[in-house]
Design a protein around this nucleic acid. Sequence first.
DNA 1: TGAAATACCTATTGACATGGTAGGTAAATA
DNA 2: TATTTACCTACCATGTCAATAGGTATTTCA
Lengths: 133, 133
Amino acid sequence: MMISTRGRYALRVLLDLAENQNEGYIAMKTVAHRQELSLKYIERIMTVLSKNHYVEGVQGKGGGYRLAREPKDYRVGDILRLAEGELVPVACLECNAKTCKRADTCKTLPMWKEFHHMVNHYFDNITLLDLMK
Amino acid sequence: MMISTRGRYALRVLLDLAENQNEGYIAMKTVAHRQELSLKYIERIMTVLSKNHYVEGVQGKGGGYRLAREPKDYRVGDILRLAEGELVPVACLECNAKTCKRADTCKTLPMWKEFHHMVNHYFDNITLLDLMK
DNA sequence: TGAAATACCTATTGACATGGTAGGTAAATA
DNA sequence: TATTTACCTACCATGTCAATAGGTATTTCA
């Protein structure tokens, strides 16, 4: 599995925020209920999004999260990479993978590389706005 | 991670067999050494390939495996699906996943479906012969 | 005919990721 | 002051991955 719940839930929450943008700050309790997700789990995911300025959080009563930019300025690829770590479908391509000594002669590596590129390109060409339609 | 070692090793072994096709039956001991893979692990992978007639195995001294068809008749997608199980990048799409009750209204599902299709299409359009070049 | 080499079979294991849960603290509002 | 919220840290159950271990059955070759 390449896309886990972390990335998928992050996307769904952001999408929820996007669709209710006019409501201002939205409590995760509300989103959790609407999306039928665990509040605690969402909170963990939002921490990352908040620290990377994908959302703005306000504590206290009446607080919550809201998008930091326009839906059209969120690329799905960025969201997934942030939530999941890297969007790498094959271990050989991980950035911290010690270079395989067979890399020079490996007949499959080019295929994996092209695939990797295709995957990222696919998700980078979809925005939150696209998903709202 | 979507493509694990099982699929990648299966591919490498088949590719090795393809490139040494004229040698007849090739012992996995040889391939394991050439590819720097664990013999025991390869054996487990080959069992599946053998049962599905991707390779023909002969026991005993001088035995080994050989391809059952021409390299051009092996699709990478088929090999990966056989070794890995399914080639599904997102859990919602697994065939045994109980249908999500949000599926009808889910705004992300179409994206996952298209992605899933793209992934399979990509690997189904590559053959062993392509990789040999 | 016996030794060696091979595919084939079953069980086990350590490490790690996944998908959460639990239990709080800090800040803001009503 | 009570309540609501984001924010923080720790923990845990489960499953998958990537092998390893130890054998058996079959075939060839000397």
